[in-house]
């Protein structure tokens, strides 16, 4: 892979996750949310970002952990992928260059650095899964 990829590292619950930076539209502070009726419990509500309504989910809660104990940031995904925003803990850093290594196993793809390990999330798959889950 010759293209330099950049990732956004974030903390959700007890785990670290990484998102490809091109799949992220905005990182913002927490906002006042509008409730979404009949939504799953991890769907915290809806918000408006750049003229698009996006569903806000608690990423840790959605991924099977307890609800995020100290939410700090709202990561709005690219609107072209779908209207979805993730409520996470801290934004750890932005990995600009490639002292990173991607490893893949049966549980998923992992972003490996010299001092951390984060699960690489695919925003497209995530939106699809969430959409499917919300449709149920």
């Amino acid at each position: 892979m010759s293209e330099v990829r950049r990732f956004l590292l974030m903390q959700a619950g007890s785990r670290r996750y990484a998102l490809a930076l091109e799949q992220v539209a905005e990182v913002s502070e927490l906002r006042t949310l509008s409730p979404v009726p009949r939504a799953p419990v991890w769907c915290l509500g809806a918000t408006r970002s750049a003229g698009v309504v996006a569903a806000v989910i608690d990423l840790a809660w959605y991924l099977g952990e307890e609800p995020e104990p100290a939410p700090e940031k709202l990561v709005v995904l690219d609107q072209r992928l779908g209207g979805l925003a993730l409520q996470v803990g801290q934004i750890s850093s932005v990995m600009l260059e490639a002292p990173v290594r991607l490893e893949q196993d049966s549980y998923g793809t992992w972003l490996m650095t010299s001092d951390t390990k984060a699960e690489l999330l695919d925003a497209v798959e995530l939106i699809q899964e969430i959409s499917a889950a919300m449709a149920r």
């Binding site: 950049r6 956004l8 930076l21 091109e22 905005e26 913002s28």
Partner: peptide
């Protein structure tokens, strides 16, 4: 930081 982060995102875009 947030602005820089979003600037980074915009730069990637």
């Amino acid at each position: 930081n947030l602005l820089a982060l979003n600037a980074s995102i915009e730069a990637v875009r």
